[in-house]
Write a protein that binds this DNA or RNA. Structure first.
Lengths: 285, 285
DNA sequence: TCAGCATGTTTGGCACAACAGAACTGTGTT
DNA sequence: AACACAGTTCTGTTGTGCCAAACATGCTGA
């Protein structure tokens, strides 16, 4: 099987029954965790969960008890409701710790948010797709919520386009083909040619712009960072309301994002974006 | 099962086979996740995991494939190694989001660390036991590492003692009984009477002190915060080297921790510690 | 070049773990 | 009181998920 298509940006669609080695019970447990994650603080009751899982109450109950025994879920009162348990924090901490990114990235993000007042987010590159793993919210009352840990489509976010601007044209075309570049707003780029053009300017400019391409009224600026081998590990981006940024400030803000992304690259022992482009290791189109 | 050498409030030891409704497969999967969490960035191979799980390679393999299919694990090269996948981040984010604590707590922690230069940690109370769920590292090169998401023993950390200082004497005695108050350094409190005395002063003082009771040379100050119903949700603490803090600064620093914990209480709609003690809702001994 | 070893992957058959459904318990509502 | 409903527990049966052993692959050193 050549196209080992791990390409499915949709988490929920794991019904791809091609997998031979799927353990039903475990798969159910993981879906249960996903459901609990959706529930948030209020949690779910056994019956609600069993309905969503399309599994009998008794089986769901057994699953839950197993999760609880291992602290992956906890029971909260009243009327026994279940929500995620503390064990999941340990997992996430271990993962991000292992990446070593948050240690380096967090202070940089904090400074960027402090300086700009905008929400900063950090995404890692997963085969050219952005996966947001951390964020620092700005002081304002408006929150730009992001699901962390999900693989997003790359073509309608500044973070995604920043990552793509470090890919070669072939891969970009492949991604476009694979995702179909669905539109989200009237500004979303939906053709390969437009995308390549946009990425070309992003690359020379040093940062990518999302001008209401993901959400009406929302404006983002993103820049990629690199590790010591010169491969793009991910990107950071800032998000705010379009009405808050006059055109003449875009360049200034974008260069600030670029500079902070470079700080992360340096922290990782990698080159700045400028060095990267000059070094000849960047793919040329 | 002879005592596992590291002081372990025991996540791993879920062999308590009394649990009727344990699903073997799921339990294995969860233990597998725990193992992967220990692995960190390097990950483990199938054989390593199967040995640690005490399960056949083929079964372990099937488990792994199921985890991978749901993005709870990923395969990394070379020589197929497995580590945690991005899905776990989503879980943790959902959990802390739900608690609403990190949103309120994070800025406070940042300010406290910025002001003191010490590492700040946030613990939630789990039946009187502290579970650290977030941290903000200080600028220094020395890092005080904590496993997030683990249930720790409460009697040898400032965070734990801060939480306990909001409990009634009965519960404290029960915890002492349950844990046996094992010693960690020569300063660790190991008798119930000493513990109660220490907690009494902590309570009136407004913050708890860990004077090399957990680790030689390490000094901590912790203070509890309360929600709108006046119950203690957790505590924050700062950690540093004992040699960095002269005796005369302890009070000042402790009161700063107290003040920041109060900020969290206020953010949660709860009373300050002072109001709490005066309000008569605090248990009296 | 070829055994020899140590991985990861695949298969198939059997046993029993884990399903579903029905019975039981508890709590709040009319 | 009787009901309705949700959370538990029990139990028989089936199909799931176990394991052993075979297969494939890659590395080592003779």
């Amino acid at each position: 099987m050549p196209g080992k298509s791990d390409t499915d940006p949709d988490d929920t669609n794991v019904e791809t029954s091609g997998d031979r080695y799927k353990l039903q019970g475990v798969a159910r447990a993981l879906r249960l965790l996903d459901l609990l994650a959706d529930a948030g603080a209020t949690g779910f009751t056994v019956t609600e969960l069993s309905q969503q899982l399309e599994t009998s109450k008794s089986s769901t109950f057994a699953l839950l008890r197993t999760l609880v025994a291992h602290s992956y879920a906890t029971e909260i009162q009243p009327g026994p409701r279940y929500r995620l348990g503390r064990a999941v924090i340990r997992l996430a901490d271990s993962l991000t710790e292992g990446l070593g990114l948050t240690e380096i990235g967090r202070p940089v993000m904090q400074e960027l948010t402090a300086r700009t007042g905008w929400t900063t987010r950090l995404a890692v590159a997963d085969n050219g797709f952005p996966v947001f793993i951390d964020r620092v919210d700005g002081p304002g009352t408006i929150r730009f919520h992001t699901q962390l840990g999900r693989r997003e489509l790359p073509h309608h976010s500044a973070a995604g386009k920043a990552i793509m601007s470090a890919l070669d044209a072939g891969r970009i075309r492949a991604i476009a083909q694979e995702t179909g570049l669905p539109g989200r707003t009237r500004n979303t780029i939906t053709t390969v040619d437009d995308l390549l053009a946009d990425l070309a300017t992003s690359r020379t400019r040093g940062f990518a712009i999302d001008d209401e391409e993901d959400d009406e009224g929302v404006f983002c600026l993103g820049a990629a960072f690199l590790d010591r081998t010169g491969t793009c590990l991910g990107s950071i981006s800032v998000t705010g309301l379009k009405r808050d940024i006059p055109t003449w400030r875009v360049r200034e803000l974008g260069e600030s994002v670029r500079a902070h992304a470079d700080d992360i690259s340096i922290g990782l022992g990698g080159p700045t974006w400028h060095e990267y482009l000059a070094g000849g290791k960047a793919p040329t189109w």
